[in-house]
C-alpha cells in the first residue's frame, strides 16, 4: 500500500494505491482496471467508464498525459518524497540561486554574460533560435552569473538549465 501525491494543474491530489485494482482518492475507495495498449497508450477503467489516456514519461517524476483532447503535465511522487521535495524547495529559495531555464528547444546563438559578471533585472542573458525565430531570454532579477552550462552554438532542450544567477 503506497500513497502518492500527484501535482496537476497546480493542484495536489493524494492517491492511495491499495492494490492494483483498488485506489483511494478524494476520500473514497474506487475499483480500477489498468491495461497497457502500448508504451504510450493506456486504458483505465474506473467503475463503468473506460478512459483512453496517452502517456509520455518526461524527466524526473513528470508525465504528460492526454485524454479526450486535453493535455495534462503532472508530477507524481510518493508521499515521503513529496514532503522531502517541499523542504528542498524552501532551502533553495533561501540560497537565492535562480536557475535560468530554456523555455523552448533551440540553438544558443549568444550568451551575453560571463561567469562572475553582474546582471540587471530584465537585461538579456541568452539569445536562442528556434524555428527561424530569435528569442531573447532576460534575467528575472539583479545578480551575478554563477555557472554557465552551455556554449554558444550548442543546441538546448526545453527546460534545460542554461545558467544560474546568484
Amino acid at each position: 500500500m503506497n500513497e502518492y501525491v500527484v501535482t496537476i494543474n497546480e493542484k495536489k491530489k493524494n492517491v492511495l494505491v491499495i492494490n492494483e485494482n483498488t485506489v483511494k482518492t478524494n476520500g473514497s475507495e474506487i475499483e480500477v482496471e489498468l491495461s497497457k495498449v502500448n508504451n504510450y497508450l493506456y486504458l483505465l477503467k474506473i467503475d463503468n467508464k473506460t478512459y483512453e489516456i496517452t502517456s509520455q514519461k518526461l524527466a524526473g517524476e513528470k508525465y504528460r498525459f492526454g485524454i479526450d483532447g486535453h493535455s495534462f503535465e503532472t508530477a507524481v511522487r510518493t508521499k515521503l518524497k513529496e514532503n522531502a521535495n517541499e523542504v528542498i524547495k524552501n532551502k533553495t529559495a533561501e540560497h537565492h540561486v535562480t536557475k535560468i531555464i530554456s523555455p523552448m528547444p533551440g540553438l544558443v546563438l549568444k550568451i551575453f554574460k560571463n561567469v562572475g559578471e553582474t546582471i540587471k533585472e530584465n537585461e538579456p542573458i541568452v539569445l536562442l533560435e528556434a524555428m527561424k525565430m530569435e528569442n531573447e531570454i532576460r534575467s528575472p532579477k539583479n545578480g551575478i552569473v554563477g555557472e554557465i552550462f552551455l556554449k554558444r552554438g550548442s543546441s538546448v532542450e526545453k527546460d534545460a538549465v542554461i545558467l544560474t544567477i546568484e
Binding site: Y4, V6, I8, V23, T25, I30, Y42, I46, I53
Partner: peptide
C-alpha cells in the same frame, strides 16, 4: 481525476 489515478498506478 482519471489522470491522477493513472499517474499513481
Amino acid at each position: 481525476n482519471a489522470v491522477s489515478i493513472l499517474a499513481a498506478l
